[in-house]
Design a protein around this nucleic acid. Structure first.
Lengths: 284, 284
DNA sequence: AACCGGAACTGGCTTGAGCCAGTTAACTGG
DNA sequence: CCAGTTAACTGGCTCAAGCCAGTTCCGGTT
């Protein structure tokens, strides 16, 4: 495969090994020029996508893999690392490497802001969606503080970063005690006033948007700016994001019936568990 | 550093090494128990987020890094690989490892379906957005074929996978000749009929939705299902997605004024160059 | 039957060595 | 002055070896 220094090879005393190497090349003109680690990865990927290895199945151990290809353990490790970075596979210390199963995505829609849903169930859309999947939801408000808004938030709320303050509410969302989302909501102090929004961790029936409505800010429009990226180390730890899984970040702005922004929420969620689902009219 | 088996150490004959190990622990209670590769990665990440290393800057070479920490080159490589997987850094063969710059995201909004925009400019929203960024857009229709629809597409179009056929149009989107998106549009054969949609690669002024309108399918509502994941090897190659960068997948359904689906498009785009931006009414 | 220990597996991380292949700049000869 | 070569960088990949740390299971003890 090297073929890097064939000329040198001729000048130097003919090594025993080089002979059969050239022979095999002559016999099999269809040289597999892929690197060993890629070959292993490609083969495994093939077996996975062909369903020969099904979700939950265990891959051959690194040492077995290496032996099978006549390669070093590190090379097999490299192959596994590639699959892991693609999110195809999940390594568990001491147990093995397993084909990742694709759990049903939780589909967050715009209807999560619907007043009707709010009224009918009294439950937050998150709870509804998780329950629908047969898992048990939990929402935890970790902190309610007051601070200067981040740049992008200030911009969307029409605030001056150096002057205005916002209430910052940090919420964690769990399904079966597994963390799946973090949301940080920013509310202008002028909007929250002395309401529970400004201080209470629990907001009572009908979710936060019922409270906004009581304050004179009925949610009429939303803007959602969506991006995706790899998690920071903190996010990876906090959300226990597996290797090879990105996060979706949603910067959400709530607007009242006069199109005034009264709230911004930054949602970060595991992309292997969550998706978004919007249906909307084409305007104008 | 290990300190993993201190108890065992007491039971066994006292090794010479263990003495100073306990000593140093006593002297410096602030043991850095992180693994060498993590320490290097953490330090570099810190320097990057603190802007000491700015986008475009070159990191110390692997060999220099290794020497600085008294570690092997492979360990430095591991550290770099971690940063790469986080999408913080971009390695270039022969040149070095560079802090990745965060280019402005292209923001695709729902307004891309607006009839007014379509009429006013005659340009597709993609072209508008790219031009706005001072780059030159290009759209290339790679193929127009006829086939059975994929499962999820059939579902959304209300078709029977084994009976109905669809027109499949594959489009590639470039900015400055850099591929940034791929879109595959599926149209029921019954909808496309013998129109240009069914055969022509170029569709003329006003983009594809003008053609649909002419056929009696004015786009009135859209549904967009969004997810994110790591690219497949094919996507990584086709879109030249750098390591550590996910893709955003949008499964888009176009509905006419009677809420009938007449078209589904699967869009895959590099998450480091693209984002989505929706503004919509809260319905009900 | 319950417990505990160890053996034999698993992946995690590191070392230090070597070769290959891009890149760049300085040096050379025309 | 330009063109081509070369040397000294860079990262890419592999090897072989070793130790550590989880997991699992089996067999012996209590």
């Amino acid at each position: 495969m090297p073929g890097g220094a064939p000329v040198k090879g001729w000048l130097e005393p003919v090594a025993l090994g080089s002979v059969w190497r050239w022979d095999t090349m002559a016999e099999g003109p269809e040289q597999d020029k892929r690197l060993p680690s890629r070959r292993m990865a490609d083969d495994l990927r093939e077996r996975i996508t062909q369903r020969e290895l099904k979700p939950g199945d265990k891959l051959p151990s690194e040492r077995v893999l290496a032996a099978a290809y006549g390669a070093a353990r590190n090379t097999a490790r490299e192959a596994v690392a590639l699959l892991q970075a693609e999110g195809l596979v999940d390594a568990q210390h001491g147990r093995g490497v397993f084909v990742r199963s694709r759990p049903a995505l939780m589909r967050l829609g715009a209807n999560r802001y619907s007043r009707r849903l709010r009224g009918e169930t009294g439950l937050s859309p998150f709870r509804i969606e998780v329950t629908k999947q047969g898992r048990s939801p939990r929402v935890e408000c970790r902190s309610v503080t007051q601070d200067a808004p981040p740049e992008d938030v200030a911009e969307r709320l029409g605030l001056d970063r150096s002057k205005d303050v916002v209430i910052r509410r940090e919420n964690w969302y769990f399904a079966d005690e597994e963390p799946v989302q973090v949301g940080v909501t920013y509310i202008p102090a002028a909007v929250a006033g002395a309401s529970p929004l400004a201080s209470e961790k629990t907001l009572g029936r009908g979710s936060i948007y019922a409270r906004f409505e009581e304050l004179g800010y009925p949610i009429a429009r939303i803007r959602e700016e969506i991006s995706a990226r790899m998690p920071t180390p903190e996010e990876a730890k906090g959300l226990s994001v597996p290797l090879g899984v990105p996060v979706i970040e949603v910067l959400h702005t709530g607007l009242d019936d006069q199109k005034r922004p009264f709230e911004v929420t930054r949602l970060v969620m595991r992309a292997d568990l969550n998706g978004l689902d919007y249906e909307m009219p084409v305007e104008d």
